[in-house]
Design a protein around this nucleic acid. Sequence first.
DNA 1: ATGAAAGCGCTAACAT
DNA 2: ATGTTAGCGCTTTCAT
Lengths: 340, 340
Amino acid sequence: MTKKAPTIKDVARKSGTSTATVSYVFSEKDRYIRPELRERVLQAAEELGYVKNAVASSLKGNPRGILAVIIPQFSNNFFTDICAEIESVAQKAGFVVIICNTDDSVEQEEKIVKRLVSQKIDGCIICPALSTSKNIKTLDIHNIPYVVLERDLEGETPDFDFVGHDNFQSGYLATKTLLDAGHRNIAFLGWTTPIANLRDRLSGYKAALDEAGIAVNDDWILLDNLSEDAGKRMAARLPVDKVTAMVLAHHYYMAKGTLLGLQKRALRYPEDLSIVLIGTPEWRDLVHPSLTCIKRPEKEMGRAAASVLLKKVKKPLYREKRHVFPVEFMTGLSVRDMPG
Amino acid sequence: MTKKAPTIKDVARKSGTSTATVSYVFSEKDRYIRPELRERVLQAAEELGYVKNAVASSLKGNPRGILAVIIPQFSNNFFTDICAEIESVAQKAGFVVIICNTDDSVEQEEKIVKRLVSQKIDGCIICPALSTSKNIKTLDIHNIPYVVLERDLEGETPDFDFVGHDNFQSGYLATKTLLDAGHRNIAFLGWTTPIANLRDRLSGYKAALDEAGIAVNDDWILLDNLSEDAGKRMAARLPVDKVTAMVLAHHYYMAKGTLLGLQKRALRYPEDLSIVLIGTPEWRDLVHPSLTCIKRPEKEMGRAAASVLLKKVKKPLYREKRHVFPVEFMTGLSVRDMPG
DNA sequence: ATGAAAGCGCTAACAT
DNA sequence: ATGTTAGCGCTTTCAT
């Protein structure tokens, strides 16, 4: 026997006033209302269990109270950490947040973006599937404020606000760490993807080698798809007779696979092979020896993305500078100093 | 110069027909419309970039297309795994999902629930903060279909749909595993909480001991708050001269802390201490030796919660049975057979 | 087969 | 200081 939710009209009737008055009582607008009347309205609302219908309110042009974030992988802690931060900032500002996973599929993303447009969300943080800009354009057309997260858009695209981190630097720093420890033959393990992030990390790797006057050996750059098994495969293929160190530039579950693959070959780190990992999985200091890592700024990114978006929601023409956060070196025990 | 989004009216004008016709073209309702006209409408909509406004539509009583899930911890993989599954199921059914984190605070939850009510969401999956039913009642009052996740409600509460897993069994199974390996003096590490889950695990532990004719020693039941540091503290307090095994019944980061604390005391498992962990952190098979675990049914729970909710959204009076999923034993190398 | 128009719950300009 | 009312974009009954 689902009775209907009480509306402003019910409250008006019960408190013997008009809907306008009730509306004003529940809005931030300052229209003076006799304390006595205001009290009566509040009382009636309380008794009826009235809650303002944000849906109807937004039809009149008021903010919806909903933000969205679109990510390519739900199961990647890098993204969930960012989302957690976004949700936290949004919550404090009175918004709820819709989280959507595209599985890095442009088609899936297209459906999702349409749905969000249809829902008239106030704004959106999007890490574009495969770095494509197609669905971003939909957001543009419908005037939904958005912030692009982590992946730069390829090709001709509108001006956009961006929050990301320095992938070049992470590749560079990881490689430099190994070079400084005296390594010369350094492998780079990544994944196959059209997005720039991995490419940037690889550029950082190459730049560091270059700076040290070392030629890049393409055989030591291993790429595979995103999975734990791929990590295992790469560990199996690793030319450990030539290489003394490696940069793990891929995802946590690939990295996990790589470590397991190493175990399987009875290879030990740092004795047989030094390792620097880009990223900070929960287990970085639990494995033994602990891993030397490059920490990415998940929280900072989440916080920045959310606050930039909130500003844009308030002022649609608001433009922020690009936020590209630096990474941070985290010491560990997986790098061995080379003798000599 | 943000031009307004095109509405049904614009499409009607452009295609020279009425708003009613356009509405029918974009609805599932079957009203016959001349193919020629239908085509013209579609054409106009396409050109204008028209997307139906779900907000206005829902004002007329149509489903909103939004579900919500309320969890007490965003950073806990147990919950994010469940959420990932919920999102996936919801997405296939055409819904987007709002994810809210309460930090296990009843006050925060209250705000969130009010917001969701105000947003007129179609339904909600809630893991109630501290197992309290107060905010659930708000959902009831406003006729929002909901499914209670993982934590049973305490006290007098309305009839509700529930999806969870067998916490008693996980405590029992973990303990039984150690008993079967010949252990007699088994510690139980948990956290301080009013919710039933930990209590149930503890009951399972006690039941297993009881069954084996072993008295419970309260000194071996260690509880602390939810943090990695608390895990370290418990490891430090552990009476390893008396105890030969332990059940880790707490969260991943506590478990991590406990393992780190063990390392600090130079205690090795399973030699010095056998371990069974409730839960399956990503690192369970990465640490060495790999951990013997009790796997909880995150995916099944997520999937069940989402599908039950979707059924309730369709049919508000729909009632499902309680879903309490079993846990699963996962073999590892952290349990040593006791001699004798 | 299609269109006119009332109305969902709210806001705000306007009237009193 | 408060009430009346048009209208946000859509759905749907009723008329044609």
